[in-house]
Simulated scan of single mutants.
Amino acid sequence: MTQQPTLEATLVGHLSVAIAPPVDLGSNSAGRRRFVPITGGTLTGAWRSGHVRPGGGDWQTIRPDGVVDLRAQYVLELDDASLIEIDNRGLRHAPPAVADRLAAGAPVSPDEYYFRTAARLHTAAPEHDWLNRTVFVGNAARHADRVEIDLFAIGPLIGSPA
């Protein structure tokens, strides 16, 4: 039996993604649909810093079981002017009382609910090409005006500057 490489998680940075109030799109057979506009934000960390460009969005389905199935797409501009497209899919769920507090915009500790994402990053910048070949996971927290995400690259990281 061939031994598999170890699974490494390297913190790439911390995203703070500013959001506007959700737009309720109504319910269909999959659940309640919402669109959450992304209005800006920042990336900080040892690898790079940058900002989230306004204009992206988070399309959500609130399933009958209460799980929020989400897909956020937005553009990150790094401090070297490189543009990174982020396609971030995830799940968020909580006990009903906690979900109600989140929906009301109340402060809720991230320890009280589950919010994880899997991201694909795309760029045309040759110096950051390793992003196109790497899987990323996020450990996220929802706030009334923003989503905070610790973004981890899953490695080994081949060709990265890290």
Rank of each mutant, 00 (worst) to 15 (best):
E85W: 04
P95G: 06
T61A: 09
Q73K: 03
A46D: 01
E77D: 07
D87C: 03
L70P: 05
Q60A: 10
I62H: 10
G90D: 06
I86Q: 07
D69E: 15
G57C: 01
T117E: 03
S82Q: 12
N88E: 15
R53N: 13
E112T: 12
G45I: 07
W47Y: 14
S82D: 13
A99H: 05
I38F: 00
G105K: 08
P37Y: 04
A118E: 04
A72P: 05
Q60L: 14
D111Q: 05
A99C: 06
G105I: 08
L83N: 06
F35Q: 12
E112C: 08
L102E: 05
A106N: 03
T39G: 06
P110R: 08
F115P: 10
A81G: 05
A118L: 06
P37W: 01
Y114M: 09
A99V: 06
T117K: 03
T117A: 02
A81M: 11
V36H: 02
F35W: 10
A103E: 11
P54D: 00
D111G: 00
G50N: 09
A72E: 06
P96S: 09
V98M: 11
G40W: 05
G56V: 08
S109G: 12
I38L: 12
D58C: 06
E85G: 11
D87T: 12
G50Y: 00
G55I: 02
S82A: 15
Y74V: 12
G105T: 03
V108K: 10
V68F: 04
I84K: 10
Y74W: 11
Y114W: 14
E112D: 15
D65V: 14
D79T: 04
G45L: 02
R92Q: 09
L43G: 02
A118D: 00
A72D: 08
T44A: 12
D65M: 08
R63T: 12
G41C: 01
D80F: 02
D80E: 11
P107I: 00
I84P: 04
P54H: 03
L76I: 04
D58W: 02
P107D: 02
I86N: 04
W47S: 04
D87S: 09
S82H: 05
V68P: 07
A104R: 15
A106M: 10
F35M: 10
W47V: 07
D79H: 01
R101F: 12
F35S: 10
D111S: 14
Y114S: 13
L70W: 01
D79L: 04
P54Y: 05
F35P: 00
S109W: 08
A99K: 05
I84H: 11
W47M: 10
R48S: 08
G50S: 11
V52G: 01
R101T: 09
L91C: 09
V98G: 09
T42R: 03
A103R: 07
D80S: 09
Q73R: 14
D100K: 13
V67I: 15
G45E: 12
L43H: 11
I62R: 02
S82R: 12
Q60T: 08
R101A: 14
P54L: 03
W59E: 14
T44C: 01
G41Y: 00
